[in-house]
Design a protein around this nucleic acid. Structure first.
Lengths: 302, 302
DNA sequence: GAATTTAATCGGTTATAACGATGAAAAACC
DNA sequence: GGTTTTTCATCGTTATAACCGATTAAATTC
């Protein structure tokens, strides 16, 4: 049986890498500086090579040291996952759960989601984080969120992906806007009459592809930062936009002189939930899915 | 800082799982039975749940125990990789290297590959394993081979994949076989005139797709188990087959009344090398690639 | 040149991992 | 039905390692 580095040694190494300082790293690990120093030396001994160059006043990781740090981080994460696994096995859906949600979903369901979890999982401390798909995927990988709720299709093959509901698109316009009425192929809409969100939002891409809109001249170059800005533009300019059913069900058009109708039967975005394949709380997430599926299905119902 | 299970505890757990017996597992770990027993108890303590049900005469892993074992195996593998990483950093391409190779490559290059490694990497102890693509991918995942050499395209996204050379296909036939001469579209060959290997061999699929052969009636239902059987069929029956350049360069047609000509410019298979993304010897493998690339390029040269 | 910073070293203590012997419980043997 | 065997848990002990605090050494700063 090989003499492998220990979990503790790897933890200490990560601490040194994080703080770039033995003293502060030791403090963070609640051990003495001497203990940390010898622990790193032992690790270097078992690995048979130098990981850190101790210079005059500062330390520097060697190339091989950096590589070891990267792998150590993964090992520690996996080990933490094992603990989470057993913990969540005993007490399902307890403790803190951090969910990342994209803006074009969060604003319409956040409040009800809190309520749902409070009643279904009273021991769960829910933390919601709103960000773009790209940022959420990044945070998911780094462990800053436990699961992410976003709109698909999206490049999510790194993570386990599960579809919760279909959210159909609707064409939305002022009730007096005649130019769009009865149009089947949206590419035939008047020039600059289609208003969309700015590019960061996946809703823009989804609306374009789901409604078979080629990037034609019918799209207005203005890029709105929020759905409400978008709506006010559409209301004033007498153009059209495409909104998911979820937004309409949440009452975004209430008391406005706007009308909407189903874009096409096949025009929809999927609402999906993602988690790290190596997560220790997969059991928790599946239980959560059981409740989220009817929840989102209702939120997106015509 | 959390109290995580230690590497040793996980190693011991794996040993118990492997032997399904405390005493024999302890022996395999070179520790006493009592030590192992308490180590497992400590592990169960830190994880907060039972992993093994100790019954009268036999032990049984709980469901959660099996899950922990699976994750522990990965953690241990990753930790071993860290050691290998540092070791191969100090002494590149030393020690044992196990290469898996598919039959339709191995038989033509194995001897020369041994010779190449013996001269370029004298400290390397080369072990070659010949098996089908499917089996090699399985062995690669389990760590039974360090790298795999196979023909692409193949579903290899689980692993790091690197293409070494293109191996063109040639149509091969008896020199007196007139029916195939001057034919551009291979689908127009006479019925049952194309002989191929049995389905397990990826060469069959590659020949079909690279030469744009739809599974038409020109393909003979006979499935040969080796290229030599295949050739004897073609020689006797006066039909055709498709052989990679590598086979021809190795002299498979020497002293035979056979002729060959390039199938098409675009008809080729790629020779690729694969390794686990988490392997600790990636540096080694890249050095190996530097030598393998010219080696295979020459082996496949027209 | 004194003060400061920083990691290594040293001596001593505590905690952990290891051993061997024994114990308990169930099954197998006779 | 009692004895032996098998097998894991427990106990007391010892060796190893992990850890602490104080000190040292080297370099930088003032």
């Amino acid at each position: 049986m090989k003499n492998l580095p220990s979990i503790k040694q790897l933890q200490y190494l990560l601490a040194v890498h994080q703080h770039q300082h033995f003293g502060r790293a030791a403090e963070a690990c609640f051990i003495g500086q001497s203990t940390l120093s010898s622990a790193i030396q032992n690790l270097e001994e078992t690995l048979g090579c130098q990981l850190i160059e101790r210079e005059n006043r500062s330390i520097m990781f060697t190339a091989i040291g950096e590589e070891v740090v990267e792998r150590a981080r993964k090992i520690i994460d996996d080990t933490i996952s094992v603990k989470e696994l057993t913990k969540s096995f005993l007490n399902p859906l307890q403790g803190q759960l951090t969910i990342g949600i994209i803006p074009t979903v969060a604003s319409f369901i956040a409040a009800d989601l809190y309520h749902l979890c409070a009643t279904e999982f009273p021991d769960l401390e829910l933390v919601l984080i709103e960000d773009t798909s790209d940022n959420l995927l990044d945070k998911l990988e780094k462990g800053q969120v436990d699961v992410a709720l976003l709109a698909l299709p999206y490049n999510t093959k790194k993570f386990h992906t599960h579809i919760l509901a279909q959210d159909p698109f609707n064409m939305v316009m002022h009730k007096d806007y005649e130019a769009a009425k009865g149009i089947a192929d949206f590419n035939l809409l008047p020039p600059s009459s289609v208003f969309l969100l700015e590019r960061e939002h996946c809703l823009t891409d989804h609306a374009l592809s789901a409604c078979h809109l080629s990037k034609s001249e019918c799209i207005n170059p203005f890029e709105a930062a929020s759905l409400h800005t978008l709506l006010s533009m559409v209301e004033r300019q007498l153009g059209v936009t495409f909104l998911p059913q979820m937004a309409i069900n949440a009452g975004i058009l209430a008391h406005k002189p706007m009308v909407f109708n189903a874009a096409q039967d096949t025009a929809y975005r999927d609402i999906g939930i993602l988690w790290r394949k190596t997560s220790g709380r997969i059991r928790d997430f599946r239980l959560l899915c059981d409740k989220l599926k009817p929840f989102f299905t209702e939120k997106c119902a015509r």
